[in-house]
Each structure stands twice: as structure tokens, then as C-alpha cells.
Amino acid sequence: MPIHDIFPKTTLITSRRKKFFGQLFRVPGLSRRTKFYGAVALGLALTVYFGVLLAPSDFTKGSVISIKQGMTLSDVAAALEKENIVRSTVLFKSAIVLLNGDGKVLSGDYFFNSRPTFVGVAWRVARGIFGFAAEKITIPEGANVYEVAALVRQKIPKFDTDEFIRIAKDDEGYLFPDTYHFLPGVSAGEVHRTMHDTFDEKMKPLNDAVKKSGKNLHDIITMASLLEEEARHTETRRLIAGILWRRLDINMPLQVDATFSYINGKNTFELTLADLRDGSSLYNTYTHKGLPPGPISNPGLDSIVAALYPKESPYLFYLADLSGVTHYSRTFEEHKEKKFQYLP
């Protein structure tokens, strides 16, 4: 019996498959009956695969389906069917129940670049296999929550920056700057949680040192955030840490210019006398003694270690010139001379 009598012309039978069937009928040692039933079985298998298991032929390559929190299994199945990702909602839901038992799926955005089977779709949404390549996002030391939100938004346009700032602003200083890999559908809560968990993990080796320092963690992280902005090198940070802790001990105002970047966005060379005298913000360490209410950014490990292990010196004043070199002074008069010498 000719092969075309068994499988009439159809879009499912390509020239490659026709060639395969032709080769099947030329296999030596097989009876015509065996070849016939083999071809029928194979044809039925292909029919089931393409007509039942596989997504509809009008599936769009590169489809993205969003599964929101709170969607029921029926909601998810209907959405997948509407986007031509599964043919049968019944088969999809049955597969989910078999895979998960409780019929739950994981929320998120799922990317489908080729025609999937309903079993493959069920497997992915049951286990949160999103199909996206994670975005590499580097958060530099000293970035505050607003800057973190903007950096994530640059790589992930749908990222909810307002929500991130809302939930993360009270954790300023405790979101560890590092290189992260986030999926395109990452939520504000997940970024916040990941960065905070990383902070906790990085601090574990330093927990004993914090306890022995006689200072609480909040003060140490607040000091570290100042050091992050005031200097770029470990030894310089340790020297400045010694100066600033000493100022606190003698009840002297910290007079740290870096807090103004948090107050009004100005750097040392942009500040005016009016800025220094404006006591409306508790972060102004010229008008308010003691540490500011909290960290002004998220410091890196080097600055945290410098805050924990300050270096003693005879100095009480310091300044950085335009090239970034730090100059130290024992007295205010000496400090004024160096300001005249090194600053415009």
C-alpha cells in the first residue's frame, strides 16, 4: 500500500517525514503487515503530538504570559489558551494537579520562544521556570535607595521603582551593594529582600566585632555610609573614622559635607554658608550634633570594616582637595590654612 494512501497530504507531513516513511517501508526483514502497523502507530503518535500535546499552530514565537499573584488555576489555563500556548485547559490543569498535587502555579512572567507541549508548560509554571535570561545589575557602594531603584529600572523597564522606594527607604544602609542577577519580571519586594538578605549574609563574619565594639549596628552602618562618601581608600576611611568617632566622644559636631548630597544633592564645592547654617534637616551635621538619624546610602564592606576598626591619630580635622587627596590637621587654625592652600 503506498504511503500516501495511509497518510493523505497534510501540513503535518513534511518532505522530511515523507522520506522517513519511505525509508521505513524499505527496512529489510520486516513484513508488509509489520511495516503497515508501524506506520499507522507512528502516524497516530504524530497526530496526538501535533494535534493534542503541542501548542496550536498559530502559536506566536516569543510569547510572554504574565501570571499574577492570586490567579486561580482556571484563570491561568484560560490565559494560556487565549494566547495559543495550550490547546486544552482541561489537559493543562490535569497536568498541573499531577505535578503539584495542590494545583498551585508560581506567579511571574513566562517566556515561550518555541511551540511547547501542555506538559512542558505545566512543568514550567508549576516550578517557576520563567524562560528569561537574568539581567546582570551592579549596585555600586554608596548608592541610596533612589539610585538603586533607578539602576534596576535601567535594565528592567517594568520595575516598580515607587514600590521599591516605599518598602526599602526604611532599610537605607542595609541593602548590600553587589552584582545581582534578576529576572525581567522581578518584583520590588524580591529585589529588596535579596539585597537585605545579602547584607545579613555579608555581616555574619563581623557580628562578633560589632558586639565587641561597644557600638550598636545602626551607628556603625550610619558611620560607614558617611565614610563611603568621604573617602575612597581603606586607610583613608579608617583615619577619618577615627576622627569622626573622636568628635562624637568630645561632643563636637561631625561637620560632614557628605550628608548634603542626601539633603539637597550638593557636594562640598557647591555648598553655601546658608546651606551649612540651615538646621531644618537633622542630617545637617553642622547644626546638629551626633550622628545623623540614619545611613545616607548603602555602604560597602570596606567602609563598614573601617567604621568598625578606626585608626587613631592626633588629627581632629581633614579635607580632600580637588584631586581627591586628603589632608589632615590637628587644630582648626591649621585646618583653615590648608583650606586656603588646597581648595579654591
Rank of each mutant, 00 (worst) to 15 (best):
R115Y: 05
G29P: 02
T236K: 10
Y180M: 07
T285N: 09
R277C: 01
S74Q: 12
T89Y: 00
E141R: 11
F159D: 02
T331M: 10
P8L: 13
S94C: 01
K158N: 13
I85M: 02
A133Q: 13
S323N: 15
S281R: 09
K338F: 00
F130I: 06
M203C: 12
A39E: 12
G294M: 12
L244T: 00
T285Q: 07
A95C: 03
V305K: 15
I221G: 02
S15P: 03
G214N: 08
S57K: 11
L98R: 09
R277V: 03
S281N: 07
G173C: 07
F7D: 04
A45R: 08
A39W: 11
E135V: 04
A168S: 15
K9M: 08
A143Y: 13
E81R: 14
M203Y: 09
L73W: 00
F332H: 13
A134V: 07
L226S: 03
D162R: 14
G300R: 05
K338A: 02
Q154W: 03
D5L: 14
A55D: 01
I6D: 04
T138G: 05
K68E: 10
L99W: 00
E83Y: 04
G29K: 11
I96Q: 01
M203T: 09
A149L: 07
F59Y: 14
A55K: 03
V76Q: 00
K169G: 02
T34A: 15
D208C: 06
L54I: 00
V256K: 01
E230F: 03
G324Y: 10
Y309N: 14
V52P: 00
F176K: 04
I165D: 08
G22K: 11
K289S: 14
E141A: 15
V90L: 11
I85P: 00
L343C: 06
G189Y: 09
G290N: 13
M223H: 01
S31T: 15
E147Q: 15
D160H: 07
S281Q: 06
A150F: 04
V64P: 00
G70A: 12
A168R: 05
P8G: 05
K155H: 11
G214T: 08
D257F: 05
K61R: 14
K336E: 13
L244Y: 05
K338R: 12
F20S: 10
P116T: 07
H218I: 10
N144Y: 05
Y286P: 01
K19M: 08
P344T: 12
F340T: 14
V90C: 02
S114H: 13
H181F: 14
E230Y: 06
A79V: 10
S303N: 04
M252N: 06
E334I: 02
V305E: 13
K338W: 00
P253C: 10
T326W: 03
L54Y: 04
H327F: 15
L54D: 02
F118R: 01
T117W: 01
T10R: 11
R124P: 02
E141N: 13
L343V: 07
S66F: 10
S31A: 07
T117F: 03
E229D: 09
G131S: 05
A79T: 14
